[in-house]
Design a protein around this nucleic acid. Structure first.
Length: 297
DNA sequence: CCGTACCCTAGTTT
DNA sequence: AAAACTAGGGTAC
C-alpha cells in the first residue's frame, strides 16, 4: 500500500471530510468504525475505484490517505479539492440562511462521483432516508460488485452496468430496493446495452443535460439534478427535494413557481447562478443537521 | 400538468 | 407487548 498526505492549505477554503462524505451526496464511501451518520470527525473511510482501494481520514492539517495506487489525483477529483470555497461563497447572495449554513459547515465540498454509481444511488434514493440509501448501495456492492482483497480483507467495487443488468429483479428486491428494483434493472440494461450512457450528458447545456438524464427509468428532474451536481460537475444544479422545497416556502417564497423547471430557474438565480448547487448543498446539510448537536467549525 | 400507486423499514402511536 | 400508523431527499403511468 502506498500512503501520503494532502496538506489542507492546498485545498482553497479548507475541507470538512465528514460533512462532505456524510451529507447525502455520495454513497460510495464506507466508514470503518461503522459510525456513519453518527460518528465524530476523524474516522477512516474507504472506497474502491478502478480496481483500487482508497482509504482516507482527516487530521488537523491534512487529508491522510492509504491506497493500492497513488490516490492524490483520485482524491483531488472525487472531493473537488481544487474548488475555491472562499471564492464560491463570495459569489453567493448575502442572506441570513445561506451565511449561517456556510459558516456552520465551511469545508463541505460537492463530490464528483463515478457517474453510473451516482445514477443508481439516486434512483434508489426516492422516498428514502440517507442511512438506508447507504445501506442499499453497500448491499449492492457486496453482492454484485467485483471483490478486491487487500491485506487479508475483502472490499467490493460498485457493480458495473453489466453486473446489475444481469441481476434479477427478485435479487434486487432482496436488497430492500422495493419498487425501485425494476428501475435499477432497466436503467442498468439501457447502459449495458449501449442504448444510452449518463456520461453523454456531459457538455450539454444544463437544462438539456437534465432532460437527457430523465430518459433513464426511475429518473425524474430531481434525480437528474443530483447526478448533474454530484457527478457531472454542473455546480449550478439545484435538486428540488423536500428539504429545499420547504426552505423555498419559508425563506424564498417568491421563487415558488408552478413547475419544477420554473421553480428551479428562480431558486438557481436566487442562490447565485453558477454555484447555486453549492449553496443548495450547504443549506440542505444545515437544515438536516439542525438540532442534532452539531459542533460546527 | 395533475393524481395516485408503488416498496420497505425504523420509529412512534394505539 | 403486538399491531397499526407514519414518513422518508420521487417517479411512472
Amino acid at each position: 500500500m502506498e500512503r501520503g498526505t494532502i496538506p489542507l492549505e492546498t485545498c482553497p477554503g479548507g475541507l470538512d471530510l465528514r460533512a462532505t462524505l456524510e451529507s447525502g451526496q455520495s454513497y460510495r464511501w464506507r466508514r470503518e468504525d461503522g459510525l456513519l451518520y453518527e460518528g465524530v470527525p476523524g474516522g477512516w473511510y474507504h472506497t474502491v475505484l478502478d480496481g483500487n482501494l482508497i482509504r482516507v481520514r482527516q487530521t488537523d492539517r491534512a487529508l491522510e490517505w492509504e491506497s493500492t495506487t497513488d490516490a492524490v489525483p483520485y482524491l483531488r477529483r472525487l472531493l473537488r479539492l481544487d474548488d475555491d470555497l472562499d471564492a464560491i461563497v463570495g459569489t453567493g447572495p448575502d442572506d441570513p440562511l445561506l451565511c449561517e449554513a456556510y459558516a456552520a459547515h465551511r469545508g463541505l465540498r460537492i463530490v464528483n462521483d463515478p457517474v453510473f454509481a451516482c445514477l443508481i444511488s439516486f434512483i434508489c434514493s426516492a422516498q428514502m432516508r440517507v442511512g438506508r440509501i447507504h445501506g442499499m448501495q453497500t448491499t449492492l456492492a457486496d453482492r454484485f460488485g467485483a471483490s478486491l482483497d487487500v491485506d487479508g480483507r475483502t472490499y467490493h467495487a460498485f457493480p458495473t452496468p453489466d453486473q446489475l443488468a444481469s441481476t434479477s429483479v427478485e435479487e434486487l428486491r432482496d436488497c430492500s430496493l422495493g419498487y425501485r428494483a425494476p428501475y435499477v434493472k432497466r436503467t442498468a440494461e439501457m447502459v449495458a446495452g449501449g442504448e444510452a450512457h449518463p456520461a453523454e450528458a456531459r457538455g450539454l447545456d444544463y437544462e438539456t443535460a437534465r432532460e437527457f438524464l430523465t430518459r433513464f427509468v426511475g429518473v425524474g428532474n430531481k434525480v437528474a439534478d443530483c447526478v448533474l451536481l454530484f457527478s457531472l460537475g454542473y455546480l449550478e444544479a439545484v435538486p428540488l427535494d423536500t428539504w429545499i422545497r420547504s426552505a423555498i416556502e419559508e425563506y424564498y417564497p417568491e421563487c415558488d413557481r408552478d413547475s419544477y423547471r420554473e421553480t428551479s430557474r428562480a431558486i438557481r438565480e436566487r442562490l447565485g447562478g453558477e454555484y447555486a448547487g453549492y449553496a443548495q448543498t450547504y443549506v440542505f446539510h444545515h437544515l438536516r443537521t439542525a438540532g442534532t448537536a452539531e459542533a460546527g467549525e
